[in-house]
């Protein structure tokens, strides 16, 4: 029973190789709204199993979680498919929750951290269909020079990627800080290396979309003003909520 619980937690708070269940599952979910829901629910299910079964978690699981996070962050460097990229960064971020879980953090704190990461990935998940509808695929390197031809979509894409990679003032930044505040020095160094790899992967991903000269004969329509406003509002709400909540003390850790 304990092993089964551990395996279940390892799937929902992805631990390699169980994490492959998450990435394979996420990649094949067709609708953006469902992906957003899954992103929100996945780590929470893992935490629910962990806290409801009172499973005895081995100490090595925290280290394994960090290694899983580092593995997926490293693998993100050569990803061009945006959907897979989101699946990998989510796996990397959710795996970091093991650090707090093994260290005995309270359920509320961990749920807050999980929510912080999940919420930051949602906008990115919403951008995938926007790219697919216009470019045929959410795949970097196919059509460069988006800044000149599709400036609104490029702007939303940039902000979504920044939100996902724990840039202040998005919730993932505060969630990362909360994870760090409970970690030992060496673990904190490891977590920050993961953060560094996320940033590198983000720049490489955007390189396949933003700079360069537009190569197609035709330019698809840019985002409508309404969609741009909605996306912007979503991002501002996320950042604003994270800023206000964290500055008031609802930080998930400090």
């Amino acid at each position: 029973m304990a092993i089964l619980s551990l395996l279940a937690i390892g799937i929902f708070l992805p631990l390699f190789p169980l994490s492959m269940v998450w990435t394979a599952f996420f990649k094949y979910v067709p609708w953006a709204w469902l992906r957003a829901l899954i992103l929100l629910a996945w780590p929470q299910i893992g935490l629910t199993i962990a806290f409801s079964t009172h499973a005895q978690l081995p100490q090595w699981a925290a280290g394994w979680g960090l290694l899983t996070a580092a593995l997926y962050a490293l693998r993100m460097l050569t990803l061009r498919d945006f959907s897979t990229w989101i699946a990998f960064i989510a796996a990397s971020a959710f795996a970091l929750l093991w650090i707090g879980l093994v260290n005995g953090n309270s359920e509320a704190v961990l749920r807050f951290q999980g929510l912080g990461f999940s919420a930051s990935f949602i906008i990115a998940a919403a951008v995938v269909p926007m790219l697919k509808n216009r470019l045929g695929a959410a795949y970097g390197g196919l059509h460069c020079g988006m800044v000149q031809r599709l400036p609104r979509l490029a702007g939303v894409l940039v902000l979504a990627v920044l939100a996902a990679t724990a840039t202040p003032l998005f919730p993932s930044f505060f969630a990362l800080m909360a994870v760090l505040s409970e970690a030992s020095f060496m673990t904190a160094v490891g977590v920050l290396m993961v953060w560094l790899l996320w940033s590198w992967a983000a720049v490489r991903l955007l390189q396949g979309f933003l700079p360069g000269v537009w190569s197609r004969a035709q330019t698809p329509p840019d985002l409508s003003l309404r969609t741009t406003w909605l996306s912007g509002l979503g991002l501002v709400t996320l950042a604003g909520a994270a800023t206000v909540l964290s500055s008031m003390g609802f930080t998930g850790g400090w």
Partner: peptide, 15 residues
């Protein structure tokens, strides 16, 4: 944004 070189060196400063 047309210059890939600018992007590359911008990345150096960013990282």
């Amino acid at each position: 944004s047309r210059s890939l070189q600018a992007y590359r060196y911008g990345f150096w400063s960013f990282i």
